[in-house]
């Protein structure tokens, strides 16, 4: 057994600087959940397939279960907690809530963050295929995706 090595991790989570002494092996997801108070980050598979733990690293969607917290040093991390401080985040929340685009809610933050990235960055027009490609990176076990696709299309149509 190797002695555990610890290091100071300095990063910005949802615009707030965070400095924590961590085991170097701490995953980004565990750091966000346990140290940074971001319990919207959910662990569904812990091997990068389901997408529930998706966060934005310098604005790009990443699986936080597949990264170490030390890999986020010097980067900006955004979770649902941060996105919900923005107008676009609130619009996404409204669309999901009104379209019933969630049931158990465990996968929802991941979908919302990937959609946020699409809506922020994709050139016009966002096609149905763009939406399917974005949502296709996530697993939802409850909705059959029907209502999530509807929410995404509504957001696309409202995009401004």
């Amino acid at each position: 057994m190797q002695p555990q090595r610890r290091t100071i991790v300095t990063t910005a989570v949802n615009g707030t600087p965070v400095e924590t002494l961590l085991d170097v092996r701490t995953t980004l997801a565990d750091f966000l959940r346990e140290e940074a108070g971001c319990t919207s980050v959910h662990l569904g598979c812990e091997h990068g397939v389901c997408g529930a733990c998706t966060v934005l690293l310098d604005g790009l969607p990443v699986r936080s279960c597949l990264r170490l917290a030390v890999q986020a040093v010097g980067h900006e991390i955004t979770t649902l907690e941060g996105v919900m401080q923005t107008e676009r985040g609130k619009t996404i929340g409204r669309a999901f809530v009104e379209q019933f685009a969630m049931q158990c809610g465990f996968c929802t933050a991941g979908f919302a963050l990937s959609l946020y990235h699409l809506l922020e960055n994709a050139p016009e027009p966002i096609t149905d295929q763009d939406i399917h490609e974005t949502l296709g990176g996530h697993i939802c076990r409850c909705t059959g995706y029907v209502s999530i696709v509807e929410a995404a299309k509504r957001l696309r149509d409202q995009r401004g």
């Binding site: 959940r33 319990t39 919207s40 959910h42 662990l43 649902l80 907690e81 919900m84 929340g93 999901f96 809530v97 009104e98 019933f100 685009a101 969630m102 049931q103 809610g105 465990f106 929802t108 933050a109 919302a112």
Partner: peptide
């Protein structure tokens, strides 16, 4: 509209791991 969904987007959800 969904009460459960509002809680989620209000960042008040409480799952067992939390």
């Amino acid at each position: 509209s969904s009460t459960e969904g509002r809680r989620l987007f209000d960042l008040q959800a409480q799952y067992i791991a939390d």
